[in-house]
Design a protein around this nucleic acid. Structure first.
Lengths: 345, 345
DNA sequence: AGCTTTTAGTAAAACGATTTACTAAATCGT
DNA sequence: ACGATTTAGTAAATCGTTTTACTAAAAGCT
């Protein structure tokens, strides 16, 4: 009734009359020019036959490596992050790594706590979307604690680190250009009060482009925790009422846009006649909305791939020659009906 | 430049002149009536001071427990599963467990492969949404390999196992009743060709209720891999064209409904005037759709909680007295505009 | 006081791999 | 044919815990 004991290296050693060292070499493909073909074959066949698999706890203990990577996303139930997670998992798996996920909720204390819990588990690397005010903690993690860290979705200017991010500035630029070409002249930006790089850069992209076109700016910034709430809706509603001239809005995140759409529907504002909309990040709700909402989409597969490949690369590069992995991937403006040219243009 | 070595029990033992056994007892709260208050205090203070954390690989090796649970969802990037995952994570964490996720893609071979990979990692339990044709594999996993397994979202009749599922039959029943009360008499069911329990039960719920009302049945079943595809849309379109009398549709899953909505939009069918819609599973796209789509919603928090609590319970119950954890949670009909009474009713 | 029991602790053997340092036999060079 | 090197392998230490089996000292009992 109790689980039958897993077969161990010692069992094989005893059974075959071959030392554990030899078996270990064979199992780890280090037998190349140390062990004879015959012995290799014999051991491999036996392993195959009895289905031996090394005990990974023992391996971890001995080598100090756990073959585990932690992905700390802002919110793992967010479709963007869960899509990234799924694709990373795939690749990690093929390379013998497992991924553990968790959500920072953009909360520094929570993130620190999670981090400390995982460090005890000797995970090999962290892929992390650092929350607000995490710059120093991150620096410490990388430079003092010497952990392998890949930063995702945001990055910092003041110190070197591995990261994979989006071309946020350019994304916003494309959006504003799109509005302009569709004849919009009163383009608003709805963002979040935050110093996280993507939010700042998206705003900068908006500002710079608007200035180039010599257009007026209309800006609304919600607090981070208002984004998905009733309060957020109220703020957006007020904003629209105060500025009736606005004819288009760039939402800096999908959650902002979703709350924005709630307001727009409630007020029976017509898209795109009265108001053109572009949101950052694609989600199926945007494509299915009536009318479909245009978006600045992120290349999810590419992001996921760069993230995990980069992390694995850092893990395998013995040379601590302070080589960093940095990628900034392009976004794409996906034009849907929410951004149709004004008829009188 | 190299990571500073973690402090170990031996270090503490040497430093304090206390045996490792004693320290181990204290660390694991087994010192109760074996070790004097004074020593306990001394050790605890020292541990606090130097920030000692036991090496979990060593613990796993020694105890054979990894404090890790694997959640094998059908598709971890699906909002339903990722929401469940996130909430389980939270509770697992508080109980000292980590969760590793992966996706079965409803593919038996893939699932077996994942399973085998995880078994080598000595994970303590599996929470799994078994794919099609997995009954025997599951039985073997539970009864022969004696793994702790919690089955989610679907279950089998022919053998005992732990599971947490939804009241699918009743859910479908509520939906059909809703249609009936709204004056609909030509109610269609769009489902999936599958023997998985929720799909079967939802269909049964539809059939039985329709029969009770003495109404005609209209049924369409897509193949599993057509659900999200163009092919699926074509099938739904044909179905609607062949049966123009249909005045309402119950979609057995959210993905079916999403593809259905694409068709409906394309054909400019009016909801709810021409066609009332109810979908299983809630998603933000349904609430945001124009008009908002009614759904049979699953109690995500409750499901997640039962799942992880049940699993932890099975893990801690020493008594192998074949006690099973089985929960069937109620669904709820969320009425939105897609299900408004016909005017002439 | 003399015996048993309890208290407060310890030494050492696991757990299952990896890896260092070693060796006997075979091959090589001259 | 002799020492030097290569080949093919091994024994044992180690990673950091948990746990079993033990013990000296103190307390309890009559």
């Amino acid at each position: 009734m109790k689980r039958k004991k897993q077969i161990s290296m010692k069992d094989i050693s005893r059974e075959l009359g071959i030392s554990m060292t030899t078996i270990s070499f064979i199992v780890n493909n280090k037998a190349e020019n140390k062990i004879s073909k015959g012995v290799i074959k014999k051991v491999e066949d036996y392993i195959e036959k009895v289905g031996y698999k090394p005990n990974s706890s023992a391996q971890s203990l001995r080598t100090g490596k756990s073959k585990t990577i932690v992905f700390m996303a802002e919110d793992i139930s967010d479709p963007f992050f869960s899509a990234i997670a799924k694709q990373m998992e795939e690749i990690a798996f093929k390379n013998g790594y497992n991924i553990i996920y968790c959500s920072t909720e953009n909360n520094r204390e929570r993130t620190l706590e999670l981090l400390s819990l995982f460090k005890d588990r000797q995970v090999d690397a962290f892929i992390i979307t650092p929350p607000e005010n995490f710059e120093n903690d991150l620096k410490k993690l990388i430079y003092e604690e010497q952990q392998v860290v890949m930063v995702f979705d945001r990055h910092f200017e003041n110190f070197n680190h591995n990261y994979v991010v989006l071309e946020n500035f350019e994304g916003a630029h494309k959006a504003i250009e799109g509005f302009y070409e569709a004849g919009r002249r009163n383009i608003a930006f709805v963002g979040i009060e935050s110093e996280l790089s993507p939010l700042v850069e998206r705003h900068q992209g908006y500002l710079k482009t608007i200035k180039n076109f010599h257009l007026p700016t209309y800006e609304l910034f919600l607090k981070f925790d208002q984004v998905k709430t009733q309060e957020g809706m109220v703020a957006i509603r007020n904003f629209l009422e105060i500025h009736p001239s606005i004819d288009s809005i760039l939402f800096a995140t999908n959650n902002l846009a979703i709350n924005g759409l709630r307001v727009i529907r409630e007020k029976h504002i017509k898209i795109p006649e009265d108001l053109a909309i572009i949101s950052f990040d694609d989600r199926d709700v945007f494509e299915l909305y009536s009318p479909p909402i245009s978006v600045i989409s992120q290349p999810i597969s590419d992001l996921a791939e760069e993230l995990i490949i980069g992390t694995l690369e850092m893990l395998s590069s013995k040379k601590e020659g302070m080589h960093f992995f940095r990628k900034t991937l392009p976004s794409k403006l996906v034009v849907r009906e929410s951004l149709t040219a004004l008829k009188d243009f």
